[in-house]
């Protein structure tokens, strides 16, 4: 086939251009670290990488949710722990005071102490996290659930605050105060609010006419509340465990999703570097060969 100078030129330029394109592509991969920067580089991987990115955002959000849930629940747990101690102390006091042999002055001292315990209980009932009452159901801002002036637990809000821990998995993070501090609303259960019980106990203790037997009945009432609170607390502990499991699963998910994202998107750096080196060599060979060939013509040899 007849070959002309211009053909040699054109061919050389086209091949050089092709090899420059290759170098450009590998340089971009190397400097961005990504194999796929546009959907057209690899449409399937691009869409997959979008999917994984979104999944990562979702997982992060769920992790945030579980962290907040655990914070809330742990505070509730600690508060309930203090509540248990207070109720325990109240019970001890009442047990001692129920003995007929207690002097009147001791009884009134006991009554004083129980009053203090009641106030402390009230303060615990008004615990808050980040400015929100934890025992007020969904009325977390406006009024404290325990009214220190009236000495009563006034909140009637038993709504749960539900938080999403996973797709479609909603768990309540709060214990409504009405469950613990108010009168029982289970039909057939005659448990009274601990505040009322303590109030009544104080009244009985300050009444000089009360006998040991009168005071004795309060022990049972206090115990009813004690049992309730400890059982609520252990249920809460179980919930916390469950959420911690969810959290750990989320962390594993995060790790594996990040890995999938990297597989879809990231460039294999050693491979890219080797390819780039190859391409450079090819390019150099093309340049040097081209330079030698296109310079020669018959004119150099004619006289």
């Amino acid at each position: 086939m007849r070959v002309t100078q211009s053909m040699l030129n054109t061919n050389m330029m086209r091949n050089l251009n092709g090899s420059m394109n290759g170098i450009d592509k590998y340089m971009e991969m190397l400097s961005s670290g990504k194999r796929v920067t546009r959907p057209s580089d690899d449409p399937v991987s691009a869409v997959r990488s979008m999917y994984h990115r979104t999944a990562l955002v979702e997982i992060e959000q769920f992790k945030r949710n579980t962290t907040e849930a655990i914070n809330w629940m742990e505070l509730t747990d600690q508060t309930l722990g203090s509540v248990v101690n207070v109720v325990q102390r109240a019970r001890e006091l009442v047990v001692r005071a129920s003995s007929d042999t207690m002097a009147e002055s001791s009884r009134s001292a006991t009554a004083e102490e129980i009053q203090q315990l009641k106030d402390q209980l009230g303060a615990l009932a008004n615990s808050s996290i980040g400015g929100r009452y934890i025992f007020a159901g969904t009325e977390t801002k406006n009024e404290p659930p325990y009214d220190p002036v009236a000495g009563e637990f006034v909140s009637t809000n038993n709504a749960e605050i539900k938080v999403e821990m996973g797709k479609g998995i909603f768990l309540p993070i709060n214990i409504p105060g009405t469950e613990i501090f108010a009168d029982s609303d289970i039909p057939g259960d005659d448990r009274e609010s601990i505040f009322k019980v303590l109030d009544d106990a104080i009244e009985a203790l300050t009444n000089p006419a009360s006998t040991g037997k009168d005071i004795d009945e309060f022990i049972n009432k206090i115990e009813q509340n004690f049992d309730l609170i400890t059982s609520v607390r252990s249920a809460l502990g179980a919930k916390i465990n469950r959420i911690e499991l969810i959290e750990s699963r989320l962390m594993d998910s995060e790790y594996s999703t990040t890995k999938l994202l990297s597989d879809a998107e990231d460039a294999d750096i050693p491979k890219v570097i080797i390819n780039l080196k190859n391409q450079e060599n090819v390019h150099q060979a093309a340049l040097s060969a081209g330079a030698r060939i296109i310079q020669r013509s018959l004119l150099d040899f004619l006289r």
Partner: peptide, 18 residues
């Protein structure tokens, strides 16, 4: 195709020299 065209119609300086 352009190459083929050049092969047929292009000017080869060596050829023209000869």
């Amino acid at each position: 195709i352009e190459n083929r065209r050049q092969s047929v119609s292009g000017v080869s300086l060596d050829e023209e020299m000869a």
